[in-house]
Nucleic acid binder design. Structure first.
Length: 456
RNA sequence: GGAGAGAUGGCCGAGUCGGCUGAAGGCGCUCGCCUGCUAAGCGAGUGUGUGGUGAAAGCUGCACCGAGGGUUCGAAUCCCUCUCUCUCCGCCA
């Protein structure tokens, strides 16, 4: 049985598409999303905004369910009112020692009817829920329109791509030659797309995790957390992985639990169902977790090396902000992630994803792409997004303004700071030497017991 | 895994034999008074969501006492199931 909670919220981020103060909807208790009111009142605008993502969305069935729901709800509420009133009458009649049996008989039927109506209501609510939970976020007006990644637009480039006097090798070749990776044995232990590191490789992975966490906590003001690596389906629903992307997840047999695909899920859900004080915001967390992804549908892509694995390490940045500061905070979060690449001396570019390439939950996303010499391309190493109220609605994460009544949804943001496996790959490729050794960036040496170079 | 205890408003904490309890009391918070700062004191107010009505203040319906279901004219109060927390025992890192 689902319960509707209709929350009024200002959608400050949508000025381009909707008048301010329009409301969006959602449903709680494990099931929230767009406000029925916004959809109801702006059906075609919502359809149009969502269609820029490339998949056409028809809200006709939503409209029908919603109308039916309201009709039944009115009848149910009227009957419940009657029941409440008459029940009191029965009580006072009994108190006076008078007979109430005839109205009791009548109320028996009313009660039965109410139960019928309530059953229909919960069925319809479930149907509406299914529809609304499957609707993606509305893109921010500044997001470029486009159907696929070729429409993403370059924001900036940083650093110089290294030039080699020899043909740069891919990181998997270098790593295997150095004896720090062993993909063959990993596949024996588990299967394809799992990492196995040895020696300086394992150490490098760990060094990067510590370097990133130290930088974000000491210099960027994030609070370190170490969350569960397994989460329940409510958490997955809040952040938007469920119900739509189940096939991308590893699920534990016999449990309604899933391996985390990113620290975004457990960390964002830290405040699930809570009302934060305005004064606390922004709340900023950084967390290291391994990430587990089925990578369904990516067969044949990046089959070698560390780029695409079922398990990889990542240091994540997560923020909870007020609506009016979230885009400012997104820029800061992006800069925080970029800092890591700058200190590591890796060349990268920042792109803003177009509407067609935007993730389900995000209103706006920047990708950071690091230079990979062996392929001669920039590869994604971080993705920094503002989800506005999308996740907050689904997870019921709110804040209260000083001296104001009521609570509003926070904006949630997150970004990789960074994907560790891909950072290892980038370091190995960018710092490779003619003899196959790899020079370590100076900032990492303290984390590597002073080691300057990985060699055979 | 075995045996118990518990889950009430922002927090703590009452709810008697089911019926003006949306919920006593306290804390906290807000506003006002008082006080040469702070503290203390006095007075008033203070749950959420959704719907109707209204220009608004407001008035008003419904729902919510961990979740779901049942009994009943009527359930925070009784019954069942589940979840979570806590204590003890066992086992294990």
């Amino acid at each position: 049985m689902y319960i509707f909670h209709r929350n009024h919220i200002k959608f400050s981020g949508f000025c381009g598409l909707f008048d301010t103060n329009r409301k969006i909807f959602l449903i709680i208790s494990g099931t929230i999303m767009l406000d029925i009111k916004l959809i109801r009142q702006n059906l075609s605008e919502v359809e149009k905004a969502l269609s820029t993502r490339g998949e056409s969305i028809n809200l006709e069935s939503f409209k029908n369910f919603d109308a039916e729901h309201r009709l039944i709800l009115v009848e149910a509420e009227e009957l419940r009112h009657r029941r409440n009133v008459v029940s009191d009458q029965i009580a006072s009649l009994r108190q006076k020692g008078e007979d109430a049996s005839s109205i009791v008989v009548e109320m028996r039927e009313v009660s039965t009817r109410i139960k019928q109506l309530e059953r229909s209501l919960s069925q319809i609510e479930e149907d509406i829920n299914t529809i609304v939970l499957g609707l993606p976020n509305i893109p921010h007006p500044t997001v470029p329109l486009g159907k696929d990644s070729s429409f993403n637009s370059l924001v900036r480039r940083f650093g110089d791509c290294p030039e080699f006097e020899f043909a740069p090798k891919p990181h998997w070749t270098l790593g295997e030659d150095l004896g720090i990776f062993d993909f063959e044995r990993a596949s024996k232990i588990t299967g394809a797309r799992f990492p196995l590191y040895f020696g300086a490789g394992a150490r490098l992975e760990r060094a990067l995790i510590n370097f990133m966490l130290d930088t974000h906590t000491a210099e960027h003001g994030y609070r370190e957390t170490l969350p569960p690596f397994i989460v329940n389906k409510e958490s997955m629903t809040s952040t938007g992985q469920l119900p739509k992307f189940r096939e991308d997840l590893f699920k534990l047999e016999g449990w309604d639990y899933f391996m985390v695909p990113t620290a975004e899920v457990p960390v964002t859900n830290i405040h699930q169902g809570e009302i934060l004080d305005e004064g606390m915001l922004p709340v900023c967390y950084t967390a290291y977790t391994p990430c587990f992804r089925s990578e369904a549908g990516s067969y044949g892509k990046d089959t070698r090396g560390l780029i695409r694995q079922h398990q990889f390490n990542k240091v994540e940045l997560v923020k909870f902000t007020t609506p009016e500061t979230s885009y400012e905070e997104l820029e800061k979060l992006l800069n925080d992630a970029e800092t890591i690449l700058q200190r590591l001396g890796l060349a990268y570019q920042v792109v803003v994803l177009c509407t067609g390439d935007l993730g389900f939950s995000a209103a706006k996303t920047y990708d950071i792409e690091v230079w990979m010499p062996s392929q001669g391309v920039y590869r994604e190493i971080s993705s920094c997004s503002n989800f506005e109220t999308f996740q907050a609605r689904r997870g019921n994460i709110r804040f209260k303004r000083q001296g104001k009544k009521g609570a509003e949804f926070v904006h949630t943001l997150n970004g990789s700071g960074l994907a560790v496996g891909r950072t290892v790959a980038a370091i190995i490729e960018n710092y490779q030497q003619a003899d196959g050794s790899v020079v370590l960036p100076e900032v990492l040496r303290p984390y590597m017991a002073g080691m300057e170079r990985i060699k055979r």
